[in-house]
Amino acid sequence: MRKIILITPLLALLFTSCQYFDKRVPSKDELLEKELKSINWNEVDEFPSIAECEKIKDEAMRKQCFFEFLTQTIQQKLSIDTLAILYPELDTIDVKVTIYPDATMQFEPQFPKDSVAYDTIKIDSILHARLVDFPKVNPAIKRGIPVKTQFVLPVILKVE
């Protein structure tokens, strides 16, 4: 006659649970590397902003508010200058805007590589002279930390 041995679920757990102790615990460097690889470094959690736009709850509208403010402010500051007189055919200029984590800003005109029609040094100096005293801009945020961001804005110089 055969004996049937019943193993209760608790005993079965005791007999099989030892395998859980054999798993290797990843080191902190491996965990850090895995986490760093999972982060998309080309996107920010929060775009740069100004105080007026931060009141807006919708992220897309807040971003639009910021870019409209930035474009309009640059246009206003450049409209009172000699760019239109020096270069009457120049109606739009691309401006690379860099916002640093400490909220400082840098503006650089962008021209095609083969552009010899414009005195890029003169336009650059006009840009730097006119875009001082820029309103305070809060930097972009990534994982709770202010980060540097760059983008190119087309700025219309001749508004008719």
Score class of each variant (00 low, 15 high):
Asp119Ser: 14
Asp119Phe: 05
Asp119Arg: 14
Asp119Met: 12
Thr120Leu: 10
Thr120Glu: 13
Thr120Gln: 15
Thr120Asn: 12
Thr120Arg: 13
Thr120Met: 12
Ile121His: 04
Ile121Phe: 00
Ile121Asp: 15
Lys122Thr: 15
Lys122Tyr: 06
Lys122Ala: 14
Lys122His: 12
Ile123Met: 12
Ile123Arg: 07
Ile123Tyr: 03
Ile123Lys: 07
Asp124Phe: 00
Asp124Ser: 15
Asp124Thr: 14
Asp124His: 10
Ser125Cys: 05
Ser125Glu: 14
Ser125Gln: 13
Ser125Phe: 02
Ser125Asp: 13
Ile126Asp: 08
Ile126Phe: 01
Ile126Ser: 07
Ile126Ala: 04
Ile126Arg: 10
Leu127Trp: 04
Leu127Ser: 09
Leu127Tyr: 02
Leu127Asp: 06
His128Tyr: 06
His128Cys: 11
Ala129Val: 03
Ala129Ser: 05
Ala129Thr: 03
Ala129Met: 08
Ala129Asn: 06
Arg130Val: 04
Arg130Trp: 02
Arg130Met: 06
Leu131Asn: 06
Leu131Ile: 07
Val132Thr: 12
Val132Ile: 15
Val132Met: 10
Val132Glu: 07
Val132Gly: 04
Val132Ser: 10
Asp133Lys: 15
Asp133Arg: 15
Asp133Ala: 15
Phe134Pro: 11
Phe134Gln: 13
Phe134Leu: 14
Phe134Gly: 09
Phe134Thr: 09
Phe134Ala: 11
Phe134Ser: 10
Pro135Lys: 15
Pro135Arg: 15
Pro135Gly: 13
Pro135His: 11
Lys136His: 08
Lys136Gly: 04
Val137Phe: 00
Val137Thr: 08
Asn138Phe: 00
Asn138Trp: 00
Pro139Ala: 14
Pro139Gly: 12
Pro139Lys: 12
Pro139Tyr: 03
Ala140Ile: 09
Ile141Gln: 10
Ile141Ala: 01
Ile141Pro: 04
Ile141Gly: 04
Ile141Arg: 06
Lys142Gly: 08
Arg143Trp: 01
Arg143Tyr: 05
Arg143Lys: 15
Arg143Pro: 10
Gly144Ser: 06
Gly144Asn: 07
Gly144Ile: 02
Gly144Lys: 07
Ile145Phe: 00
Ile145Cys: 01
Pro146Phe: 01
Pro146Gln: 10
Pro146Cys: 11
Pro146Ala: 12
Val147Arg: 06
Val147Ala: 05
Val147Glu: 03
Lys148Ala: 07
Lys148Asp: 06
Lys148Val: 06
Thr149Lys: 08
Thr149Glu: 09
Thr149Ile: 13
Thr149Gly: 07
Thr149Arg: 07
Thr149Tyr: 01
Gln150Asp: 13
Gln150Pro: 11
Phe151Asp: 02
Phe151Thr: 00
Phe151Ser: 01
Phe151Val: 02
Phe151Pro: 05
Phe151Leu: 02
Val152Lys: 02
Val152Pro: 02
Val152Phe: 00
Leu153Lys: 04
Leu153Met: 11
Leu153Trp: 04
Pro154Ser: 09
Pro154Trp: 03
Pro154Lys: 09
Pro154Gly: 05
Pro154Tyr: 03
Val155Met: 11
Val155Lys: 12
Val155Thr: 09
Ile156Lys: 12
Ile156Thr: 10
Ile156Ser: 07
Ile156His: 04
Leu157Asp: 02
Leu157Ile: 07
Leu157Phe: 00
Leu157Lys: 05
Lys158Arg: 15
Lys158Met: 08
Lys158Ser: 08
Lys158Asn: 09
Lys158Gln: 12
Lys158Thr: 09
Lys158Trp: 01
